[in-house]
Amino acid sequence: MTMHKTGTREEWLDARIELLAAEKEHTRRGDVLAQQRQALPWVKVDKQYRFQTPQGTKTLADLFKGRSQLLVYHFMYGPDYTAGCPSCSSIADGFNGIVVHLENHDVAFTAVSRAPLEKLEAFKERMGWSFDWASSGGSDFNADFAVYFTEEQQRDGSIGYNFRREPAVKSWAPSDSEGPAGKMAAMSGTNLATYVLDRPGLSAFVMEDGEIYHTYSCYSRGVDGIWGMYQWLDRAPKGRNENGVWWRHHDKYEHAA
Rank of each mutant, 00 (worst) to 15 (best):
V99C: 11
E11L: 06
R37F: 00
F75R: 04
G137Y: 08
E125Q: 15
S68I: 00
R16M: 11
S136W: 05
P41T: 04
P41S: 09
P79H: 10
R114N: 09
Q38P: 01
M207C: 13
F163V: 02
L19Y: 12
Y230D: 14
F123V: 08
N241G: 08
G201E: 02
T190S: 08
K119S: 12
E10P: 00
R50P: 00
S220F: 11
L70Y: 04
F51I: 03
E242F: 07
N162V: 09
K252Q: 15
W246E: 15
V112S: 11
H105L: 11
D144F: 05
D62L: 01
Y161V: 03
L19T: 07
N104K: 13
S177P: 00
F64C: 05
N191G: 11
R67N: 09
D62Q: 07
P167T: 15
N191C: 04
D156P: 02
P54L: 01
P41Q: 08
V99E: 14
Q154R: 15
T8G: 07
G179K: 11
D132G: 04
L19N: 13
D93S: 09
S158H: 03
R28G: 06
R50W: 09
T150A: 07
Y73G: 02
D140L: 10
L117K: 01
A204M: 06
G228H: 12
K124T: 10
Q35I: 00
P41W: 09
A108G: 06
R37E: 03
G56I: 03
A108H: 04
G157M: 06
P237E: 08
W133T: 09
P180W: 04
L120V: 10
E11V: 04
P116T: 05
T59A: 09
R199D: 05
Y49W: 08
K58D: 06
R221S: 14
R155F: 02
A122Q: 12
D209P: 00
S177F: 11
M207E: 15
E23H: 05
V107F: 07
V206A: 12
A22Y: 02
Y49M: 12
E18Q: 13
F123D: 15
A204I: 01
